[in-house]
Design a protein around this nucleic acid. Sequence first.
DNA 1: TGGTAAACGGAACATGGTTCCGTATGTTGG
DNA 2: CCAACATACGGAACCATGTTCCGTTTACCA
Lengths: 187, 187
Amino acid sequence: MTAVPRKRADARRNEQTLLDAAAAAFVTSGVDAPVRDIAFRAGVGVGTIYRHFPTRADLIVAVYRHQVEACAEAGPALLTDSATPHEALARWIDLFVDFLITKHGLPEALRSGDATFETLHAYFLDRLVPVCDTLLAAATTAGQVIPGVGAYQLLRAVGNLCIGAGSDDRYDPRRMTALLVAGLRAQ
Amino acid sequence: MTAVPRKRADARRNEQTLLDAAAAAFVTSGVDAPVRDIAFRAGVGVGTIYRHFPTRADLIVAVYRHQVEACAEAGPALLTDSATPHEALARWIDLFVDFLITKHGLPEALRSGDATFETLHAYFLDRLVPVCDTLLAAATTAGQVIPGVGAYQLLRAVGNLCIGAGSDDRYDPRRMTALLVAGLRAQ
DNA sequence: TGGTAAACGGAACATGGTTCCGTATGTTGG
DNA sequence: CCAACATACGGAACCATGTTCCGTTTACCA
């Protein structure tokens, strides 16, 4: 038995305060919000942030974990609820897009080669690639989607298409991802 | 007649040296290469860079101007050389993608909301949107492409799909843009 | 209640963009 | 050829941000 020493009360309190502060900062300044801003909002020193969340990726993952889980869990449900596997795929991707475009700077962070965001990248992949793969495989088996496009590549393309969403009303990421999914269709 | 005072010889020389140094730095470190690196390569002080190219965008535009012009001029030629307008569009977009994926960080810069890159963004749009629009219009008129997708939006989507190219061999921007263009096709 | 380890705060450091001004140099009229 | 002037140069200094480190504070437990 490894005795699990419970964290101190102030530490637990600060962790929650930081999550709230970060979530608020992310909304107004995007996921690149300056560390000092987040610390100030939470009323703590910057050292406290780094103690709880060693990298920015850890903080981002913690803030959005619930929403990513929800998106992942929606996959199988859509597969049974939709008329066709291709429709299920399209609807699931819409869900993913809706999540991404409301998080300023998140798609950029997911794509940046920056080692800081490695954890973030890995978490999204671990959680979403298998789901996407299931949907994609179902659609391919049903002969509705051309073979040879992996779940990873598709997700990455969708993520890319969501970059800069909201900063320009002439660009509609939903429309463009829909076009991409249409291109997947076996004619 | 506004007398045009010719620039000093050293200034002209430095401008060319800087262009060469920047081009080299962009190849190895991407278009975000530190200003000090570029200055060092060129053997000048950082002040000299800012005097010749007030923003990074000016430098990037100057370095890639020829290639962008070439891409723009290829549009009309492709339209007459190709079997169908849709094929011309597809080939032109391939050309654009080939240009982008060899310029590390350029697609990212084009999309960043950063005001520093405003000039860059504007230059690409000025030069390429009209060309793309011509191709798109021809394909639409021929009934080969669904209406309602503007040249700006298409170019932006293609640019986005090229972000991070080369950093990950599981992701193929050419393939993804081809899928997007396939999705444009009127069935 | 006192001792200890956990946690905290924020100063200090590293990096990279940007500005500014004293100095050096090309250019031109005499 | 020279002097005087405007142009251009160099790089120190400044600012913004991420990151580290350590002296101080505080929660917990005996």
